[in-house]
Amino acid sequence: MSISKNKLSAAQAISEITGHLYFGDMVKSLRMCENISQAEMARSIGISRQYLCNIESGERKADVELALKFAEYLKHPKEFFISRLLEDQLYTAGLDYTITLKAS
């Protein structure tokens, strides 16, 4: 479980340095760190490359189901992706909250 804790700490560190971490930026950064193309990732999770591009650029929003697919594909804790997605939605609505989810 230390891997999960390290990944959560890294996200918190990035947020402290850069400000709010948008969900699409996070997905893009993680995808690029793994050297995965948009086409490969989109095909693997069952969406179009354009839809993934729109999510990464912030033009479209992901839903919880899609956030779970990203988490599974990128091998990150689902709580990490869900909390980032919810925080992004709240931030966009003008509410700067931090969400902490616990695995069940």
Rank of each mutant, 00 (worst) to 15 (best):
I17A: 08
S48P: 05
E87A: 04
A13I: 10
I99R: 03
Y97L: 14
S2H: 10
S15G: 11
K102Y: 11
V27H: 01
G94V: 11
F81G: 00
I45Y: 09
I55R: 00
T92R: 13
E87F: 02
S4P: 03
D63H: 02
G46H: 10
A62G: 07
M32R: 12
M26H: 05
I3R: 11
E87Q: 14
A11V: 08
K7A: 12
A103R: 13
M26G: 00
A71F: 01
Q50K: 11
Q50G: 11
A67N: 03
V64S: 12
N54I: 03
A39E: 13
T92M: 11
D25K: 02
K75E: 15
M26A: 14
R60L: 14
E72V: 12
L90V: 05
E34D: 12
L101T: 10
M1N: 10
I17N: 08
C53I: 08
T98Y: 08
A13P: 01
H20A: 09
Y73E: 04
K78S: 15
A62K: 00
D96A: 13
E59V: 13
I45W: 10
T98K: 15
I36F: 05
I14H: 02
Y73S: 04
I3V: 14
D63E: 05
C33E: 13
K69M: 11
L95F: 11
R84F: 06
Q50N: 11
L95G: 04
S29C: 07
Q89T: 06
E87C: 04
T100P: 01
G58H: 02
G19N: 03
K28T: 04
I14E: 02
I82C: 03
F70K: 00
G46P: 07
S57P: 03
I99F: 05
K78I: 05
A71W: 00
E65I: 09
I36C: 04
A39D: 12
E65M: 11
K7V: 10
Y97C: 09
Y73N: 04
A71C: 10
F70T: 00
I55W: 00
Y97V: 09
E34F: 07
I45F: 10
D63M: 02
L68T: 05
